[in-house]
Design a protein around this nucleic acid. Sequence first.
DNA 1: TCAAGAATGTGGACAATGACCAGATTGGGC
DNA 2: GCCCAATCTGGTCATTGTCCACATTCTTGA
Lengths: 195, 195
Amino acid sequence: MMLLMSRSTGGYHHGNLQAALEDAALDLLETTSAAKISLREVARRAGVSHNAPYHHFGDRAALLRALGVRGMAALLAAQEEAVAAADGPVERVRALGLAYVRYAAAHPQAFALVFDPDYCAAGSPSAEMSPLIARNEDLLGGEVEALVREPGYEGRDPVALSAALWSTVHGMAQLVTLGHLPLEAAEPALDALVQ
Amino acid sequence: MMLLMSRSTGGYHHGNLQAALEDAALDLLETTSAAKISLREVARRAGVSHNAPYHHFGDRAALLRALGVRGMAALLAAQEEAVAAADGPVERVRALGLAYVRYAAAHPQAFALVFDPDYCAAGSPSAEMSPLIARNEDLLGGEVEALVREPGYEGRDPVALSAALWSTVHGMAQLVTLGHLPLEAAEPALDALVQ
DNA sequence: TCAAGAATGTGGACAATGACCAGATTGGGC
DNA sequence: GCCCAATCTGGTCATTGTCCACATTCTTGA
């Protein structure tokens, strides 16, 4: 019995160190880039020895990969929520893109981690990451399928259009988080393509 | 006399260590991400002690910033060359975008470094980086000015369109270098927006 | 019930690294 | 020709990732 207890103080055993480490690292990720997060600092924040994390993550990269999965899940959830709240094919695609950009702007380090090839390489995604990526591609693909049946978009290749739209919102997210583009410029820029 | 000598062997003084360090680091950048490049390894490759680089670069980040400037210059040159070789406003914008993506595909680590906030923050660009960024924005902005006078693009806001196109090609470059999008998909995707 | 044994924790160790210091070597300007 | 600044060297230190041996606790099965 007593699954998933969270007795976080006192005992020799932490109780739920895995989640505590991810939480501590996620906290650090609010203000620090993934490259600068040290496993030892995370362990210190969780109140355990510098070696305890190795019983839950094979190495530093594994912890960051787990954070990447969390970030991807949050990014996907933000898009799904925005799509569900929007009316009409054009408006749904617009909402999806804006949600993508806004998530990146709100959590720049987490967003960067999701697409950091040092930890989350697209070539060999983790077992947890793969389905999230697939769901995201399906989400966008489905909305674009509906879009190309709208007047003004008929006859466009949905595959090429999906790739173009993903590129656009991803680039926007990058440029906004980097400071090359103000967040307020994202919406009019997106409207310049999806009017 | 004898400015810029390059006596690279023998003497206690290298002769042109600054450039040699950048070259060595640039070599490493062909196969290794910026985050994994160590100053000591660069010094080893240049055949000097682990401390020599500090006489030419304040710290590790300064060396990587210098590489970022080189990368940005190369990215800009690739675009300028492509634009000069293309005919007509639409075709020039297309060529510019493809050059951007192709440069990234050819030099993924260098491209990533140019936009790595840990080294090349957009908020406080170095004195060498600023004019390059400005030139790149002018280049794109000028081509888009010409584009919006073309049939099919009249009346579009050139500022919003510039931001959108930069976002698109930048996102494409990211997704291609990350492996989320095959390079061959870039051209048709770009054509889905700039037909 | 209670004794393995698996999980999970601790501290110690080691190599690599970034950064600083003092001192050696060199070269150009007076 | 001499001095000073630029350049390069080795030494040192704190931090980090990772491995090892060992301690503690939980669980499981006889």
